[in-house]
Design a protein around this nucleic acid. Structure first.
Lengths: 352, 352
DNA sequence: AAACTTTGGTTAAACGTTTAAGCAAAAAAA
DNA sequence: TTTTTTTGCTTAAACGTTTAACCAAAGTTT
């Protein structure tokens, strides 16, 4: 046996990767036995198991993941699609997905759509091509056509959406209660004495932004405030666009005394514009953002915002996926998990 | 043929994935011919090729990536390891790596180490297990022991490091000229009239931080400024730690009139502390960061920083990998690409 | 018309696992 | 002692491609 082993060690040095067959040859048993030994199959003796494991270690054996995935029909890879990884919200979600899935032997492939529908379609193709066992996604702003997502469903691969999701798809979804959060923000501003509250929202075709808009409108009505069409604007919510839309609001005959903006980056843009114009925040105009990006607590004044519980969303998304793969046969009911968000009050809305 | 086709369409509805064999059956040719037709092999007639492609489309054929990877011995997957995806620098590098590699048919698997050595080791194992064709990495702050990276090299898998790299490993590296950048920062501060310049640097055991420290010291000497040991501090460069180290500098008998901090997050922490203490930036103390994170232009005052050319670094890293895999036999010389960084002057160092 | 070349494929093995089915030897039960 | 069960493996096929080697038929040279 020693002679065989040394021969294989030489082979290893030559860079040919060790396979299960090599271990079998050293020990003079079948490859099948080796495979079973490595998986602690009960039909293999303890003696053989320890021998196999010793030799495996000695030869620096690394299982060929492709081969086993091919044979078993699953890759243990999960695809993640996000608009971008640079936002703190998404990178935190990703980190938590990863933590949960790694424990169960899954790895994740992260792709970014950069808010582009085209890129998102490419990403989906890429992931399907890579034979992922499931996809966890948050849609790009642009995405309206859902045929690519239907493609995932039609392949029978679990699809879990979070944050930016689309109800019509009938898939698992994890997000926050956008309507309530919006309502809460408006009531917060009212409690601070604001009378003319504007809303720079996202595009209505995205469900979450539509819900935020509805929450805003309903809260305005509930408190008998003037509902002026000019005070409700849709935006792409980038920093630049936030600046621009803020400009438009200031240009009104009767400008608002508070602005609630459905994204922190756009809120930051608005804040910059207000500073340039020497309009005091919060004393002249109160400002509230959405998302609780780290910079909201870093700028002057700090920006009131909504904490979306990114960690929890990531964990729940991963767990939902795990449930799906574990009981694929069972026609289970859909998981729609809606978390309550949290208002983080900061200086930008503390009018005295 | 129509009957065969319809049978296979039924099969498809039943969720059994279409394989090359199915296409072969429909057309009554061999699977090998189908494979060749799909790859535009010259030994297949145009007629057959178009027929194959038509049927492939009809049956919604998606190649099984695992099978071809297994057969060809390569996965067309590249692993990327970064300390975190939330920093703008890393997410921009990743995006550019992805763009270049996607064009060449590679996909990337992104993993984060969260600056933890342990997590980084796990990531490497994960990537090796997934049979990636190469690894592009930037090391965690903690990483000193390089044996895991040696493991990659010993498997013969191309390894390309960027930003946080280690010369001793003798692998390809892409980064900026940290020494020169540091020197440039100090000279900039001197030109603004600063006399006591402090440096909150990263840990010396990381090469880039060591270079920044050397650049700082040499520039101080070159301009005959006092080189006071108290003015040079090592830090983990987190926001919190930046605050703390700034506190220490303020507590000195003879505090500095300028602080150059080797990371933007730590610089932000320092800025916050200075604001709390009502110390005016830049008039009382000038501040310079490193990395040009987006928030440096968002806070008040805006922070002078160094642009590290993340896009270019990403592209070069990807291209270097491609070169490596293309000429694996050739014992090529190492690629050490050092880019010149750019000083972005902002308010925090514009003392009047 | 015989000999060679080209065209357009086919056959079969291989990649490294996993797993259902089978089977000899040892142990236990009758 | 014979039969049954258990233990501990082995055999062989399968996962879906790719590719080296082969080959028949048609076309081209001489």
């Amino acid at each position: 046996m020693l002679k065989r082993l040394s021969k294989y060690i030489k082979n290893y040095v030559k860079k040919k990767r060790t396979t299960i067959k090599d271990i079998a040859n050293v020990l003079n048993i079948s490859p099948a036995a080796v495979s079973k030994a490595l998986h602690n199959d009960s039909r293999i003796s303890e003696k053989t198991k320890t021998a196999v494991k010793r030799v495996a270690k000695e030869l620096n054996y690394q299982p060929n993941h492709l081969a086993s995935a091919l044979r078993k029909g699953k890759s243990n890879l999960v695809g993640v699609i996000v608009p971008r990884t640079s936002s703190n919200f998404f990178s935190s979600v990703i980190q938590n997905i990863e933590e949960v899935l790694n424990k169960e032997g899954y790895n994740i492939i992260i792709t970014q759509s950069n808010e582009s529908f085209q890129k998102e379609c490419n990403n989906i193709d890429t992931l399907l091509f890579t034979q992922v066992d499931g996809i966890i996604a948050s849609m790009a702003n642009e995405t309206v056509d859902l045929s690519y997502y239907e493609k995932i469903k039609s392949k029978g691969i679990p699809l879990i959406l979070f944050d930016r999701g689309e109800n019509d798809l009938n898939v698992d979804y994890i997000g926050i209660n956008d309507y309530d959060s919006s309502f809460m923000i408006v009531e917060h501003l009212i409690s601070k004495g604001c009378k003319r509250i504007a809303h720079i929202g996202g595009f209505r075709h995205t469900r979450i932004f539509n819900n935020r808009i509805r929450g805003y409108i309903d809260a305005i009505h509930a408190h008998n405030l003037p509902h002026d069409d000019d005070l409700l604007i849709e935006s792409s919510l980038t920093l630049e666009n936030g600046k621009q839309k803020m400009q438009e609001l200031l240009a009104l005959e009767n400008p608002p005394d508070a602005v609630y903006i459905a994204g922190d980056y756009a809120a930051l843009g608005a804040l910059q514009l207000l500073k340039e114009k020497n309009i005091r925040v919060p004393n002249d105009i109160c400002l509230v953002g959405f998302g609780n990006e780290p910079f909201t607590s870093l700028v002057t004044p700090t920006i009131t915002s909504i904490n979306q519980h990114s960690a929890q969303i990531g964990q729940l998304a991963a767990k939902t996926f795990l449930e799906r793969v574990k009981m694929e046969t069972v026609k289970q009911t859909l998981n729609k998990i809606i978390l309550d968000a949290e208002l983080i009050e900061r200086d930008s809305s503390q009018k005295k």
